[in-house]
Design a protein around this nucleic acid. Sequence first.
DNA 1: AGGATTTGACCCTA
DNA 2: TAGGGTCAAATCCT
Length: 361
Amino acid sequence: MDEAITNILEGCKLARELETSIMKQVFNISPDYLMKSSEEIVTAFTAAMNLLTSLNSSLHVSSSMGGDGGEGGSHGATSIIQALNLFQSAGFEQPSMFFHPTHYPRVASEMATVSAVATPVMELGGSGYVNVLESTNPEVIGSHGGARLTPEGSSGSGRRPAESTGQRSTRRRRDNTERVIQRFPAVRTGNSEMPPDDGYTWRKYGQKDILGCRFPRSYFRCTHKNYYGCEAKKQVQRLDEDPYTYEVVYCGQHSCLTSTTPLLISSLAPVNTAVTSAVAPIITSATASSTTYVATNPRGESSMIGTTLSEMTPSTSIHLGNWLTSRDLADTRPVADMADVLFNSGSSSSSMDAIFYSKHD
DNA sequence: AGGATTTGACCCTA
DNA sequence: TAGGGTCAAATCCT
């Protein structure tokens, strides 16, 4: 255990050094350097994870992740939470400008993608962006993560005459699109807290008080719905039990080209046992947000099949993610994941795009 | 001026 | 029928 902690701390140190380097050379950073540094970080965390894995393997791990979500059944979570605390005490509690929360859904999705046996159906758009085709599989999974909540309580008072509107277009509630559920700690900005920006631009189209919930649920759709027919939506709600945590449910795929990192949600489908069993221990912690993988059966009933870390520094989430989701795929993608996060997971509004803006221009 | 937000009404599903 | 999701007029914001 001590050795694992040493490795983790070393990884943290390297990550901080890398971050510092990036900050200092914002417009003059070499991809080679990034790759090399990332690799060193990966090595340190991989070593730690291997040690932790062997530690935990003696304690448990039932490969069956039932639909009950198992919040409390986190075998082996203690070690990971300890590791989390270490990460935080090592100075990673604040979101980095480079490790933008935008990355986290991508990372979570990527992890599941790595674990999935099924090959994701993808196509390259003309501009080089990757578009993910809409899944038609009735069995879909989502993940759980977080995003920004718009400031509430402004003084708009939309009021419509009682007669209004003729007929409504078709509206269905239980569509079979993927649902990605994520939790994020609120980001404190001035006097208010809000979920972190997820990199996409959203337009709020509704807010509802939900029965039994202290806080209203806000409904957002992609701002570019009209331009690109982008059907992505999300629901944002503060948790009753933890008002400083936001739960965001993403529905549908982004078909717009406004982000360099469209969520690879559809690539998670179809759900299969590889994903289910690969997402190992469930971790819940007040200090770390989580990504929850939700399986939806053809009747639209959802059940959580797993949770993994996502609200940490990308390096830690990547490594723990690999450890959690793909022990059988160990060492296959950590460097690539890191590079992907570093180079591809920025959003149109992220600082990474500001740094590497020329990449897509 | 045009886009974003608010919020009561409407409508669908369980 | 209740509750949740969406619509769209009114209003705010830039």
